[in-house]
Design a protein around this nucleic acid. Sequence first.
DNA 1: CTGCCACTTCAAGCCGACTTGAGGTCAAGG
DNA 2: CCTTGACCTCAAGTCGGCTTGAAGTGGCAG
Lengths: 148, 148
Amino acid sequence: MADLDIGEVARRSGLPASTLRYYEEKQLIASVGRRGLRRVFGAEVIERLALIALGRAAGFSLDEIAGVFTSEGPRIDRRALSAKAGELDETIRKLTAMRDGLRHAARCPAPTHMECPTFRRILRAASSGALGAPAEGKKTRTAGPGRA
Amino acid sequence: MADLDIGEVARRSGLPASTLRYYEEKQLIASVGRRGLRRVFGAEVIERLALIALGRAAGFSLDEIAGVFTSEGPRIDRRALSAKAGELDETIRKLTAMRDGLRHAARCPAPTHMECPTFRRILRAASSGALGAPAEGKKTRTAGPGRA
DNA sequence: CTGCCACTTCAAGCCGACTTGAGGTCAAGG
DNA sequence: CCTTGACCTCAAGTCGGCTTGAAGTGGCAG
């Protein structure tokens, strides 16, 4: 029962088979062999996919994640984690400022936002680039057929 | 002096001319006319670009931002702002959880992360999709042929 | 008047992470 | 034995937000 075909892995991971093939192509996962044409995966691929999902959620690109699996067993670089945590902190800071600004703008009584000092302040921050680029944008796609 | 050519707008806004043309094409900004072939912008375009930058930083797509400018003068929809603020809250929540998880993983003493209960908990959260997708990813562009 | 060069247009390219479609293979159930 | 349909491959498409390149134009300093 340690052998899973791609459909089974798809079911268990919540990822479409096309994504699994794509991940294999990108060396993020590997099949243990083939049965005829068909890929056969070992059960451990499930945990690996979870790790990949984690990395993605943390903001690592697929290439960065692939690097984590370099040699044998996921060798997770603690410094990379700290660095990423730091980046997240920065992002959180910006998003928080943004959110507060939006909240203010939403209930600000000034007839037009341009007359509101707070709004103008955020505006300046935005145009100076201090607020970085879109940090969200997510479409919560893949809306995992919730195997939640 | 209210008339700016595209190069001047680029200088003042920090955006490349190509982006300004693109924004005009997408109806996010408009020139007040032409001098020969060349676009002539009114000074108010600068404030509008700031507004656009703000919207982008808040996570609105260009199309959404274009909607804000529908009729006359930026008519900002307070409900949209609140909604966006709510989205940001959710994003911040996830990122914060993620950051804490990363921090823990970075200093967790378990020989391999798989033996750490905290790590496994985050892992489950990630694979269940509860952590949404990459919320960061920005490239702090400036990366351009630096005309900064 | 001339040359320069900032401007113009339009089409195509790029990045990341996948998805989609056409056309093919093959293991197992009826 | 034959059908079925889950799997396969490879190429191309998608989405957002721009950038890049080729080819052309024309305002203005000298």
